[in-house]
């Protein structure tokens, strides 16, 4: 069965060559290191997935469900992913898809929003669960008004520091489209920053 390195060795290092892609057909070809186990990925990436989902725009009320969905996919498909480098990129892909599906659900149920709290208990992001982070909340509020597809490109490029071609592949869009969305998203973000500065100025 060859060399099965220790857990930490593999988490630290083993660089698997190959393109970055979330599609199993491609990742399956990268056999440089053996697949990670679910536990390793959970321990190493739960917080990462949580933060990425929030930045990508999953509503706070349903982010726990989204993390769970991501890790159900991880459990099912992990054997097709080899090496931490490919894993990270693959996880971005899974997060994007889960985020999109949550936003779709959110839109679909938007008509029932006024009934929340009457028919079903309103889910809340409570301080008891997670301490609120001021700078993080500011960042989320700046991303708030951005259309989802621009926000995804912006977050993956500017915050997660992925390359634009890789992001285009993750999102399943043309590279030029990704560049164009990035440009618009930067403008959106700058406008939000200006609005915030103006508001702070008026308060001061």
């Amino acid at each position: 069965m060859g060399a099965f390195d220790s857990v930490m060795d593999r988490l630290r290092g083993a660089h698997s060559a190959g393109s970055v892609s979330h599609s199993p057909a491609v990742t399956a070809g990268d056999r440089a290191s053996p697949p990670l186990t679910f536990e390793e990925v959970w321990e190493g990436y739960a917080d990462f997935v949580f933060a990425v989902l929030l930045r990508l725009g999953v509503p706070r009320a349903s982010v726990d469900d989204a993390v769970q969905e991501v890790f159900v996919v991880v459990h099912r498909r992990l054997s097709t992913v080899h090496g931490p480098d490919v894993l990270r990129s693959w996880l971005y892909g899974v997060c994007v898809r889960v985020t999109k599906s949550h936003l779709r659900k959110e839109r679909f149920w938007s008509w029932a929003k006024p009934l929340e709290g009457i028919l079903v208990p309103a889910k809340q992001w409570t301080d008891a669960h997670t301490e609120r982070r001021e700078a993080f909340d500011v960042l989320l509020s700046l991303l708030e008004g951005m259309p989802a597809e621009r926000r995804h490109v912006f977050v993956l490029v500017e915050l997660e520091e992925r390359s634009v071609p890789e992001v285009a592949e993750l999102l399943g869009c043309n590279v030029n489209t990704a560049y164009s969305r990035l440009r618009l998203a930067r403008a959106d973000f700058e406008r939000a920053v200006k609005r915030r500065q103006a508001a702070e100025g008026s308060i001061a």
Partner: peptide, 23 residues
């Protein structure tokens, strides 16, 4: 952006355990 990234939230232990169990 940099401040927001530095300030990224983490799942606290009970919440993490609950999500793991649900998964």
């Amino acid at each position: 952006i940099e401040e927001g990234l530095r300030d990224a939230p983490v799942l606290d232990a009970p919440r993490k355990a609950a999500i793991r169990a649900a998964t």
